[in-house]
Design a protein around this nucleic acid. Structure first.
Lengths: 153, 153
DNA sequence: CAATTTGACTATCCCTGACTATTATAGTAT
DNA sequence: ATACTATAATAGTCAGGGATAGTCAAATTG
């Protein structure tokens, strides 16, 4: 018997395809359609529409609330970035980080303004409050997160 | 259900744009136009036209009362950014950070790609290795550093 | 055991209305 | 005319209800 979460996942992916990569849903409405509790929608989203799997999710509570799901770019630039991300380890020094970022500019993955932003976010100056032992880990996470965001349309 | 508050916000912002950054309205008249209670105008103003977002609001009660909204002069992006940097304290939550960043897009200080980068760099996800007690401090430093880098160009 | 499903509890946002505060103006007494 | 008062015409505050979505851990399933 197919699991409901898989069915909901398929439904959402079909919908995303139909809508050219971007959908807006309401949690309660979807839960009602599939006769499940609303929190199961959260479960499906958190297990199937993660950033690693190439989706970007935003939401808003309150009256008129919603959940939006955006499929990330899967073109060659996106592939290149994904490849780079996997090649970055768990730690990275400020210097290596800058080398990476400069390369991105050379390869036209980002422009010089974006490079400034990325360098600013990953500088020792920005991370001065993080203990030196952890700084390179945090820097790696920030860099990877920024790179992932670039694959969003 | 569409949110009326967002519609009123959009109406006021369009009006502010048309009027070169300064408008004067009457609360009751506006409430009547949108068929809502007058206090909803206060709600919209207090949630969307805050000082942090670069608006100055003044008002007067009684006969001939009014509400005026003035938008910070954005001719100089550098000045605007400096204003924001000084208004950011030593700590900032992910949510407030996103509000700021969305506003930079609104003010044409950054584009949507740069906004994605900035949000990625300051997300809880990127800072998961930083202890929760320090996370908001680190986030504030990263945000300020990125903003400062924008003024250099 | 791992993945799924459920539901109780929490968080956030919007909208409303009753009550309060302020200001201008008209009316009145001196 | 001047001073005072009453009334009308504004705007502000705040607490509560309704409409969403999020979290987390227990129960269930395969």
């Amino acid at each position: 018997m197919a699991r409901l979460s898989d069915i909901i996942e398929g439904f959402l992916k079909a919908m995303i395809n139909d809508m050219d990569g971007y959908i807006e849903i309401q949690r309660n409405e979807l839960a009602n359609r599939f006769k499940c509790v609303p929190s199961q929608i959260n479960y499906v989203i958190s297990t199937r529409f993660t950033n690693e799997k190439g989706y970007y999710v935003e939401s808003r509570r309150g009256g008129g609330g919603y959940i939006t799901i955006r499929r990330l770019n899967t073109d060659s630039a996106g592939d290149y970035i994904m490849h780079i991300i996997t090649s970055i380890g768990d730690k990275i020094t400020q210097h290596s980080c800058e080398v990476f970022i400069n390369n991105f500019v050379d390869y036209d993955v980002i422009d010089s303004r974006e490079a400034m932003l990325m360098k600013a976010a990953t500088s020792d100056k920005a991370l001065v409050e993080v203990s030196p032992e952890k700084r390179d880990d945090v820097r790696a996470m920030i860099l990877k997160n920024m790179l992932t965001s670039l694959t969003v349309i």
